[in-house]
Design a protein around this nucleic acid. Sequence first.
DNA 1: TAATAAGGGTTGAGACGTCAACGAGGCTTG
DNA 2: CAAGCCTCGTTGACGTCTCAACCCTTATTA
Lengths: 168, 168
Amino acid sequence: MSNEPNWLTPEQQVAWRPFIALLFRLPAAIEAQLQKDAGISHFEYLVLANLSEAPGWTLRMSDLAALASGSLSRLSHVVSRLETRGLVRRETCPGDGRYINAVLTQDGWAKVVATAPGHVATVRSLLVDVLTPEEFRALGAISEHILREQGVKTFIPNDPSRLPQTSA
Amino acid sequence: MSNEPNWLTPEQQVAWRPFIALLFRLPAAIEAQLQKDAGISHFEYLVLANLSEAPGWTLRMSDLAALASGSLSRLSHVVSRLETRGLVRRETCPGDGRYINAVLTQDGWAKVVATAPGHVATVRSLLVDVLTPEEFRALGAISEHILREQGVKTFIPNDPSRLPQTSA
DNA sequence: TAATAAGGGTTGAGACGTCAACGAGGCTTG
DNA sequence: CAAGCCTCGTTGACGTCTCAACCCTTATTA
């Protein structure tokens, strides 16, 4: 193989630069809204939202980490914080002491219900509603393509009737 | 205006979920490679890279912050660190003491030259080369669309009065 | 020229994420 | 059943980001 770096072509740079800017700014904007209006981080919101959609408001730590796209260590810290705030509690898995389940509390559910509408509105105003339906569909398909290439399986909601649709 | 939250439709969720996963995972992957191979963060890389492309290896702090899509406070901390590592230095703008220029040093240039190929290779393997050219172009166009909607200019305003001036 | 306004940049404290080391439970060999 | 191992999960130290208060320089106003 050659030592010569395989630089991006000018055309590729024209696509790359806005994308990398988006990769910095969109999370920052979402983070800011959630922090201001609900006092939680985006990651914390994803944790609560995923739990709220899980059967029995319960998920194993490692599964929850994967669903929220974070490390197990990060999740452990976050669940500890959410636990002291009374939004989540831990239970060792009955029958197999290796596993630990995170369980949403009533207060946690209330928090999700109170937070979701503002979050969805923000996502709409920043992203969904500024794109044409075709653009948004394409964005989803491209994202899935990239993730699939890295062996990441994206969770598809199987029961849309379960409300609220917190995952926005 | 209704109080009823405007939830995402199931079709929109199908697009949103992979995208939000990408928004978490791609930065993490890029971060990991840069940290491992070069000992710098992605944001630090963007700072150095933008300086290396600026005339005179020089940019005003606030312009650099905008180019790197970060806050001025964050940039100030980062530049301080890069300064102690000898990769960047600060200069008060001659003729207007309010402004401060960040200037890339020779060592900083060397760092960019040494780091860029690996970074580009990573971006290619994670993103560019797994998409079709049409997909990648579309991704760039969609990103720019979103940013434009928020008034973000992807490129530096080519205003000569904002360049470092040796004389008024 | 003095007082004030306005904006760029810095600083410190607190919150958060990462990394590597560790602990604990259960499975698999002998 | 004992020893090792594997995986899940936790912990604490350290580095980094955010937020708000602050300083400094220039422009404005009287």
